[in-house]
Design a protein around this nucleic acid. Structure first.
Length: 360
DNA sequence: AAGTCGGGGCT
DNA sequence: AGCCCAGACTT
């Protein structure tokens, strides 16, 4: 049972009946979500970007605030990048925000601020990949395009007993071919959203609620009682651990030293307290290091609670020190001295937000 | 194809 | 502790 063709997977599949059951279930059981209030393609777009690798309950407050601040593509195009990142603060994958703003600037310049309905024009916009393209085309524009995300692959892997590795890029293409065969051309929006909603509410990764599934009778995994075996997915590698000394440096005016991260790479363009890798640096060298770097005198040094933060592919272990100095004559171009109540004007990643919370 | 890019929720 | 999540981009 490996590497079947699209047609073979669908050999005994009752497409029409499946569509009716799925769409009827979606229309009666869908959650009320803010991006479902209307069919504004911009709002659909923003929601789909935010929902990448991010749970619905996490996105809701960010989406509401974002649309209030940036209600149209033009408004977002004309905003300051730091304000956009501040609205994205804590949501993660910050290049999504950067790419989204670059894309609406393209929409403003090339399409008079109107989200294009053309598939190729939409696909060319930054941050719109295969999934998001299909989601916008089907949900906002009623076009029969596949929108294959993790939910769809899990649901269809179980229904059609597909045991190919969903971590492989080419497996997503197989699912796109299958969806092209079975999508309901009269209501592609409800069909695609129905697959995803089913994955989120019923056909969950663990403990799927098969007894309440509207398409149970079409599901091979249910018939064979192998729901727990599907989908097949190879394991991710373990995260690399990185240890840092992190410095909350306060001068004699009560100002704190913060710095802006580079505009590419991890947590690009966000702000942080200065950090250095602990590797090979003894904690006893910290005062001398601070004094040599900033040409200042260390008055007091106090260790705060350590902060541990897990990313997808690495782990930060931060030893945090609050350091009082008399003054800071030398700071770099990417650094600022701020009083504590100014910190909320700048976007900080979560591990540094935790430090800010320890200061009050 | 593999690596990079966040953060939270669930078990 | 590990896995999951309405993935896209870079190399």
């Amino acid at each position: 049972m490996k590497n079947l063709s699209t047609k073979e997977y669908l050999d005994t599949f009752n497409k029409g009946a499946f569509q009716v059951s799925l769409i009827n279930w979606f229309k009666s059981s869908q959650r009320t979500l803010p991006w479902r209030a209307d069919k504004d393609p911009y709002k659909i777009w923003v929601s789909e970007i935010m929902l990448q690798q991010t749970q619905v309950d996490t996105v809701i407050p960010y989406f509401n605030n974002f649309i209030e601040q940036f209600p149209t593509p033009i408004a977002l195009a004309e905003a300051e990048e730091q304000d956009v990142l501040k609205a994205w603060e804590g949501l993660g994958y910050y290049s999504r925000a950067r790419n989204l703003q670059a894309a609406v600037r393209e929409v403003k310049e090339s399409y008079h601020g109107k989200v294009p309905e053309d598939k190729d024009q939409l696909s060319a916009l930054k941050g719109i990949g295969p999934y998001t393209l299909g989601a916008i085309m089907s949900i906002a524009f009623e076009q029969a395009e596949p929108a294959v995300d993790g939910n769809v692959m899990r649901v269809l892997a179980r229904i059609l007993n597909i045991n190919e590795d969903i971590a492989k890029p080419r497996t997503r293409k197989l699912f796109e071919l299958i969806v092209r065969e079975i999508i309901a051309s009269h209501d592609p929006s409800s069909f695609n959203q129905g697959l995803m909603e089913l994955g989120a509410l019923v056909c969950r990764p663990k403990n799927p609620k098969c007894d309440h599934c509207p398409v149970q009778e079409y599901c091979q995994a249910n018939t064979l009682a192998i729901q727990g075996m599907l989908p097949v997915k190879t394991k991710a590698k373990k995260q690399k651990k990185l240890s840092y000394y992190t410095f909350v440096i306060e001068n004699n005016k009560g100002e704190l030293l913060v710095e802006k991260r580079p505009d590419n790479g991890l947590l690009a363009s966000l702000w942080q307290f200065p950090m250095i890798e602990t590797k090979g640096v003894d904690m006893n060298m910290i005062p001398a290091f601070i004094e040599a770097t900033f040409h200042t005198n260390v008055l007091t040094i106090k260790q705060l609670a350590p902060v541990r933060h897990v990313f997808s592919h690495l782990i930060w272990q931060m030893d945090v020190y609050a350091i009082k100095v008399d003054q800071l004559p030398q700071i770099a171009a990417n650094q600022l001295m701020l009083i504590s109540n100014q910190l909320s004007d700048y976007p900080f990643p979560v591990p540094h937000q935790r430090i800010i919370n320890m200061l009050v």
